[in-house]
Amino acid sequence: MKINPYQSLSSSLYIQNKENASQDSKAENAQQKELSQRIANDSIDISKEAKIMQMSQTLDEDRTAKLEKLKEQIDQGTYDKDLLKTAQKMFDYWNPRGTDQ
Rank of each mutant, 00 (worst) to 15 (best):
M1E: 03
K2W: 05
K2R: 08
K2N: 04
K2E: 02
K2Q: 04
N4F: 06
N4I: 05
P5W: 05
Y6I: 15
Y6C: 04
Y6M: 15
Q7P: 01
Q7E: 10
Q7R: 09
S8F: 06
L9T: 06
L9S: 04
L9M: 04
L9V: 13
S10E: 08
S12N: 04
S12D: 07
S12M: 08
S12V: 11
S12F: 05
L13W: 08
Y14P: 00
Y14G: 02
Y14I: 03
Y14C: 01
I15M: 06
N17R: 11
N17H: 09
K18N: 05
K18A: 00
K18V: 04
E19R: 14
E19G: 08
N20H: 11
N20V: 05
A21P: 02
A21G: 12
A21T: 11
S22K: 12
S22V: 07
Q23L: 14
Q23H: 12
K26C: 04
K26M: 08
A27P: 00
E28T: 10
N29R: 05
N29T: 10
N29I: 08
A30K: 06
A30V: 06
A30I: 07
Q31I: 10
Q31Y: 11
Q31G: 08
Q31H: 12
Q32R: 08
K33T: 14
K33V: 11
E34K: 10
E34I: 12
L35A: 08
S36Q: 12
S36D: 09
Q37C: 03
R38N: 10
I39H: 05
A40T: 11
A40R: 06
A40C: 03
N41K: 13
N41A: 14
S43V: 03
S43E: 01
S43P: 01
S43F: 09
D45S: 14
S47K: 01
S47E: 02
K48H: 10
K48D: 14
E49L: 13
E49K: 07
E49D: 14
E49W: 08
A50D: 07
K51G: 04
I52R: 14
M53H: 10
M53A: 14
M53T: 11
Q54R: 15
M55D: 09
S56I: 12
T58H: 13
T58W: 07
L59G: 01
D60N: 11
D62I: 14
R63F: 13
K66N: 03
K66D: 02
L67W: 06
E68W: 00
K69G: 00
L70C: 00
L70W: 03
E72H: 01
E72Q: 04
E72T: 03
Q73D: 03
I74P: 00
D75S: 05
D75F: 03
G77F: 01
G77Y: 02
T78H: 03
T78I: 07
Y79W: 02
D80L: 07
K81R: 09
D82G: 01
L83W: 13
L83P: 06
L84N: 09
L84V: 12
L84G: 13
L84R: 04
K85R: 12
T86V: 15
T86L: 15
T86E: 15
T86I: 15
A87Q: 13
K89L: 15
M90T: 12
F91W: 12
F91E: 10
D92C: 06
Y93A: 15
Y93D: 13
P96C: 04
R97Q: 15
G98I: 00
G98V: 02
T99C: 01
T99G: 04
D100G: 10
Q101F: 14
